[in-house]
Design a protein around this nucleic acid. Structure first.
Lengths: 182, 182
DNA sequence: CGCGACATGTAAGCAGTTACATGATTAT
DNA sequence: ATAATCATGTAACTGCTTACATGTCGCG
């Protein structure tokens, strides 16, 4: 019997390691800070928090905003922190190459006429150039991060990887377009 | 109500467009030809083939190997071909960045001591260098593919993309290691 | 005769998305 | 007032993986 991976659990515990957060806050973090490598909808986060509470990895205090709006602010327990650090120190086998619908389409593109092939590639290039532009703009916030022990420093390394990945993806698409444009 | 994507369906139809194949053959194709961008286990393929048969997109003939071993050889129907080409000609919105456990770990690596950080990065580099080496070897089979309308040509473009992706990933890891190695 | 490859299926469960459902607060 | 955002949850479903289950064929 294989153990489950439960990556969402560790993503949540990792975020709670440095800040106490509500489910709503966590969902914002996934959409902002982690969006380049992980995501989770609130419909997945809330049940996971419930489970983690039952398992004693996190606990929560109820805060009231205004007169009656309840907010559950979660914090990590000692057991949760221990569990997280154990996970972080474990080397997992390399992830298999992620699925990619675009590459699947391109693989089958011999069944497409020439215009459709180029259209497919150009649309994809346009989208990825926009993403690259957006990523490059977000690198500026790391300009004066120098402490190689800070969370921000690792954030900047991940961001650098995302920029490099998008640059290469765009270069590849440009090569494909050039070669197919007789 | 959102329509389902059913990418596996189209991956199977695409493969059956050019060759009649059994479920077992399809599973070999996923492990070989498509492994850089799609995968599927036999436990997913067989039920999907059953569904596609019921939907009239494929049909099968039973072949006997040896004395009694039955093999279902599937072929695509006209309706299936039409459906596949319609899908192939449709531009889907860009896929969101795939999840990446390694980047998640690196994001949290400030919680790791220096040796563990470097170990994490070096292990990952070693694995990706091996994958890159393997990919580079498999590019040679495209050396004399020149027909830009052939399936093999698009196979070679996808393969080129995979090599470029791995090269960049390795370059990124090397940069990270250099920066963290005081 | 036994082992690895060939060949086909089902069952249980995890991970994730979309949709359903409700209600409070804040800014316009 | 009303819309956007804050805030929390559940239900139904798709996609995929792991494990269960069975049997044949070819080789040494």
């Amino acid at each position: 019997m294989q153990m489950q991976k439960r990556t969402l659990k560790y993503a949540i515990l990792g975020l709670l390691c440095h800040n106490d957060l509500s489910g709503y806050d966590l969902s914002l973090e996934f959409d902002k800070a982690l969006s380049e490598f992980w995501s989770a909808k609130h419909s997945q986060i809330y049940p996971e928090l419930k489970k983690l509470t039952e398992e004693g990895k996190v606990r929560y205090d109820i805060e009231i905003s205004g007169t009656s709006l309840e907010k559950k602010v979660y914090s990590i327990t000692e057991d949760g922190r221990k569990d997280f650090l154990e996970w972080l120190n474990t080397i997992e086998p390399m992830q298999s190459t992620p699925k990619d619908v675009f590459r699947l389409r391109l693989f089958f593109a011999a069944d497409l006429d020439k215009d459709a092939r180029l259209h497919l590639l150009r649309e994809q290039l346009r989208d990825h150039q926009a993403r690259l532009e957006h990523l490059r703009n977000s690198t500026h916030k790391f300009d004066n991060v120098t402490d190689r022990d800070s969370a921000a420093y690792f954030d900047s390394l991940v961001c650098l990887g995302a920029v490099m990945r998008e640059e290469t993806h765009c270069r590849w698409l440009e090569t494909c377009i050039e070669r197919l444009r007789e």
